Simulated scan of single mutants.
Amino acid sequence: MKKIAVIGGTGMIGRPVVQALHDAGFEVTALVRDEAKARKLLPAGIRYCTGDLRNVHDVDRALKDQDGIYLNLNLNLGDGKHAWHAEREGIDNIIAAAHKNKIKRIAIISSVVMNYQGMNGFHWWVFDLKKEALDKIRTAGIPYTIFYPSTFMENFMITYRKGNRILLAGTSHHKMYFIAGKDYGRWVVRSFEILKNENKEYFVQGPEGYTADEAANVFISNYTGEKLTISRAPLAVLKFVGLFSNTVNYGHHIIEALNTYPEKFQAEETWNTLGRPAITLADYARAVS
């Protein structure tokens, strides 16, 4: 494995993965819609293929002469169930192009919290879509790696933080094993280095478990950039507003699942095979201050 194509490389977790692949000496090709924007976010030396995942010919160009693919596919928050989705129609285009170009491995990031589907009467079409995407990967006939992350530390700077506030919603009942994007990027690199023809599925969890409130307090205590405070919104309010907004409805379901899913530590094999995570939440907070 020397040449890796990345789809979704400019997102919150796509960026540290691209950086890690580049630093490890892989030749990285990123399929992007806006090359100028991507160049501001990704390291120098990346090869770009401008195109759209909706167009199988663009995907085909991006995968030409590549050894493997890494996928970080997100749903657009404002889209509904029947819209075009990267993890549904986009997966079909990727698999078709992967077969045509004789790709040796597909790696994809998914989610551990989607296992909350069916618990306590919870059901959401987004988690059905994610499960269907993985079924397509598993049955494509190409060696695959699936990563199931817990919650990324980067959310504190990109999702939870609004100005000088950390926004929480509802009550977090169980501990989440926060992982840094940089540690995860190292694991993606190592998987491409060591895996041959086998199929592997890895849980992605960090060294410490916290509820959302505990994690927010750890982050605030170690963040020195400015004084941060916690603000909280009732989950019922988000549920009501979500009746009129796909974006808020998406956020409500994700937060409900995160708050209620009884996450167990399951990353022993990941740590033993790909390496132990090195970054604590306190470390991350100090680093981004």
Rank of each mutant, 00 (worst) to 15 (best):
I91G: 06
K104L: 03
N115E: 15
K239R: 13
Q66G: 03
G118N: 09
D58I: 01
Q66M: 10
Q205S: 05
C49E: 15
Q117Y: 11
G25K: 01
V56Q: 09
G68Y: 00
T151C: 06
R286P: 00
A215C: 11
G225K: 08
E193Q: 14
R286W: 02
K2V: 08
H99I: 05
S150F: 03
E226S: 14
E87W: 04
G51P: 01
Y223G: 00
D92T: 13
L53R: 07
I108R: 10
S111G: 15
K81M: 11
G11M: 07
G8D: 00
T224I: 08
L21A: 07
R165T: 15
L129H: 10
S221V: 03
Y184V: 11
N272W: 02
N115V: 12
E27T: 14
S150N: 12
E268R: 11
T50A: 09
G11I: 08
Y184T: 12
R232I: 07
E263L: 12
D135Q: 15
A278K: 07
R190A: 08
A140I: 07
V113T: 15
G209H: 04
N272T: 09
V18N: 03
K162T: 13
K130S: 03
E214G: 03
V6L: 06
Y210W: 10
F152P: 03
H99V: 05
L243A: 08
R161K: 12
I7K: 04
L243K: 14
G251A: 12
R61G: 02
M119H: 15
L228K: 01
D58Y: 02
L75E: 06
K64I: 09
Y223R: 01
K136N: 09
S245V: 05
I158F: 04
A278L: 14
H22E: 06
T159I: 13
T273N: 07
Y202M: 03
S221W: 00
G209Q: 01
N164Y: 03
D128I: 07
H82F: 12
T280I: 02
D60Y: 05
Y250Q: 13
M176K: 15
D67H: 04
G25D: 09
S231G: 13
Y70M: 09
H123Y: 12
D23Q: 11
A98I: 02
K2G: 12
Y70V: 02
G225E: 13
H82I: 11
A282W: 02
M119C: 10
F192T: 01
L238Q: 10
P262M: 03
K131G: 14
K130I: 02
I103P: 02
W187G: 05
I166L: 09
A140P: 01
E256L: 14
S111P: 10
G80L: 00
R54Q: 12
I146V: 12
L195D: 14
N76M: 14
D60S: 08
I7C: 04
I109L: 11
G163P: 05
L238M: 13
L195P: 11
L42S: 00
W125A: 10
V237Q: 07
R165S: 14
A215N: 11
D52E: 03
K81S: 09
I142G: 03
Y148P: 02
G206L: 06
I69P: 00
A169S: 15
A140R: 01
